[in-house]
């Protein structure tokens, strides 16, 4: 039974037509995989900040590739819009980001936030688009809610702000 599958063989990955990006997998498949990523990295580090750094690195690699995909699919925006004048910090807040949905942090791990992975993705996209920034993930307690929300804080490098100011 050769050729049962629908997959076509290409000699080179670049010959393969780019998918439209509409495919989906189940959220739990992603959650399982992500949990393995976190658990594996836990075995490679001694402290929380190192763990967050490693997750961020993994995210960065994803971000860089997401940007590339977006560029192939559609024209990228020419400039990043500023929310408020003369501000170098931007925040993205989410009540329960995908990566924290099925994660509970043990007490002894303090402020560890799996959002570091998301922060890494954001940084990967920004950096490769020419907007170097420091991106971090933080828990922010919400009144009347048991679980804190996660805020991704983006702080652009000075050079970006200077350039943007020059370009008006």
């Amino acid at each position: 039974m050769i050729g049962v599958g629908k997959l076509k063989q290409y000699t080179n990955v670049l010959e393969k037509p780019l998918s439209k990006g509409k495919q989906e997998v189940s959220l739990s498949a992603f959650a399982f995989l992500f949990s393995e990523l976190v658990q594996y990295n836990q075995t490679q580090v001694d402290n929380i900040s190192e763990l967050e750094r490693r997750l961020e690195d993994a995210g960065y690699a994803v971000g860089a590739r997401v940007l590339e995909l977006l560029c192939h699919r559609e024209k990228v925006a020419d400039s990043l819009e500023k929310g408020t004048e003369h501000e170098d910090e931007y925040m993205i807040s989410e009540k329960e980001p995908l990566v924290n949905r099925f994660i509970s942090i043990p007490k002894d791990m303090g402020t560890f936030n799996c959002g570091a992975f998301v922060a890494g993705i954001v940084r990967g996209v920004l950096d490769n688009a020419g907007f170097p920034a420091v991106v971090t993930a933080h828990f922010v307690p919400v009144e009347g809610q048991q679980r804190p929300r996660t805020t991704i804080l983006i702080k652009f490098a000075e050079e970006v702000l200077r350039r943007e100011a020059r370009l008006g």
């Binding site: 997998v25 992603f30 990523l37 594996y40 995210g59 690699a61 994803v62 590739r65 997401v66 995908l98």
Partner: peptide, 13 residues
């Protein structure tokens, strides 16, 4: 979830 997020995350691992 978007399959590309899944694919790229696996790639990162």
């Amino acid at each position: 979830v978007n399959a590309e997020l899944f694919t790229l995350t696996y790639g990162a691992i």
